[in-house]
Amino acid sequence: MSEPGPDPGDTPDARLFFHLQRAAHQLRTTADRRCLAAAGITTAQLGALFAVREQPGVTQRELAGVLGLRESAVTALVTRLTTAGLVTKQAHPREHRAVTLELTSEGADALRAAQPEIDRFNGEMRALLGEDEFVRTAAALSRLAHWEP
């Protein structure tokens, strides 16, 4: 079922949040389906694996900050990743209650398996938006993601 056309009285700013929410949902569900098929992981897991790969030894608290999630959500995410054998947890060398995270070879394999799908997805977004608009949109979304009102 497609979205009804815009109301003639709507201004672009009146529907921005709605369009962001719809786009985020559409992109997330499509990307999740593709990543699950290609590598057996969701986009949330993919983001966590990228973060752990980029910062070996990251703590769960630090990972929560990188991903913009609550620590309780990251605890559940890390549990799924460790259960799947994609990351390991070790005791933090200085903080007795913290653990550090390391990517396993299976986690690295999952990232490699997902990469062609990520590339294809980004290629489709570039084709849809055009290169200049793709770059501007990525920059605008990055600013929004780091906005602190």
Rank of each mutant, 00 (worst) to 15 (best):
F18M: 11
R112M: 06
V66P: 00
Q60T: 06
E106N: 11
T137G: 04
L46S: 01
A139C: 05
A44G: 05
V52N: 01
T83G: 14
G123E: 03
T29H: 08
A139Q: 11
T30A: 05
T82M: 03
S105R: 13
L69T: 09
A64N: 02
H146D: 12
P116T: 06
E148Y: 09
V99D: 04
A24N: 11
A84D: 15
A114Y: 01
D13A: 10
L63F: 02
E95V: 14
G47Q: 07
T11E: 12
G107Y: 00
D7A: 07
A84W: 03
R53C: 07
E117D: 08
R126E: 03
L86Q: 02
R126W: 00
V135Y: 00
L49W: 00
L49K: 02
A39I: 04
F18H: 14
A31V: 06
R53S: 10
S105D: 13
R94V: 13
R120M: 01
Q45C: 03
R22D: 08
R70G: 12
T75Y: 13
A31S: 07
T82R: 15
A127H: 14
V52E: 00
S142V: 03
Q115H: 13
V99P: 03
F121R: 05
E95Q: 14
E131V: 04
E102W: 13
R28V: 05
L16F: 12
R34L: 07
D132E: 11
A110Q: 01
G5T: 15
R143Q: 13
T100W: 05
G107M: 00
G57T: 12
A37T: 11
T75V: 14
A44M: 09
H92G: 03
L36W: 09
F50E: 07
P116M: 04
L69E: 13
L86P: 00
R97L: 09
R34N: 09
N122P: 01
R126F: 00
A108T: 13
Q55S: 10
D109F: 04
P116A: 02
N122T: 09
A48L: 06
A23Q: 07
T42S: 12
G47F: 00
A48R: 02
D109A: 14
I41S: 01
H19C: 07
H25V: 08
V74Y: 01
V135R: 12
D109S: 11
R112E: 12
C35E: 06
E54V: 06
A39G: 02
Q21T: 09
V135D: 06
D32T: 06
A76C: 07
T43H: 07
G5D: 15
H25C: 04
A127F: 07
V52C: 03
A127E: 12
D13W: 11
E131A: 05
L36R: 14
L103D: 01
Q115E: 13
P56H: 10
F50A: 03
Q60D: 04
Q115Y: 10
L46R: 02
